[in-house]
């Protein structure tokens, strides 16, 4: 038996592990959503014995089967990191970056550098340039309420000339 186990390839072992993890996850979701194996079988038009076999582990699930199960349960079995996660990660990075900068300021590695505290909503963009961190606040968005003055370069010149 031990000899047989040692003969299983790394790839096969990973496949079995994944399969058991998926079975466990499906069993957990069924319990969470109070769906019996019988109900799931009916929804998927399968025999209850087949569902039971899936949940016992070792089944090689196809992508199609996993999608059908997810839809039947009403919750994804797994999630691939998408845009939302990336945005969350970006915000996390901003927090980490701010913390590092604050620490450096505290340790006087960077002295007397000013960093304004802006709430997340106010930060429309964050650039890191030679001059440090530049945060553009929501006040820029207020521009919509103001119209640019219709001025020519010579306007001020003429007034200044008249004054002097």
């Amino acid at each position: 038996m031990e000899q047989l186990r040692s003969e299983i390839s790394v790839e096969d072992k990973a496949l079995i592990d994944d399969s058991f993890a998926l079975s466990n996850r499906i069993a957990y979701l069924l319990k969470k959503h109070k769906i019996s194996q019988k109900n799931l079988a009916q929804k998927l038009q399968k025999r209850e014995s087949e569902i039971s076999k899936w949940l016992s582990g070792g089944h090689n699930f196809t992508q199609q089967t996993l999608t059908k199960i997810s839809l039947a349960i009403g919750e994804p079995i797994y999630q691939i990191p998408g845009a939302e996660v990336q945005i969350e990660k970006a915000i996390d990075s901003i927090h980490i970056f701010k913390a590092i900068i604050s620490k450096l300021v505290e340790l006087k590695k960077i002295s007397h550098t000013h960093f304004e505290n802006y709430s997340e909503k106010e930060v429309s963009s964050l650039c890191v340039g030679a001059s440090g961190v530049i945060c553009k606040s929501a006040t820029e968005q207020e521009k919509a309420n103001f119209s640019p003055a219709n001025l020519h370069k010579s306007d001020f010149k003429n007034i200044e000339k008249a004054i002097s």
Binding site: T113, F115, E116, S131, I134, C135, E140
Partner: peptide, 11 residues
């Protein structure tokens, strides 16, 4: 008076 950016690099 609203500050939008205040930044000094002080290497």
């Amino acid at each position: 008076i609203i500050p939008k950016t205040k930044s000094i690099v002080n290497d």
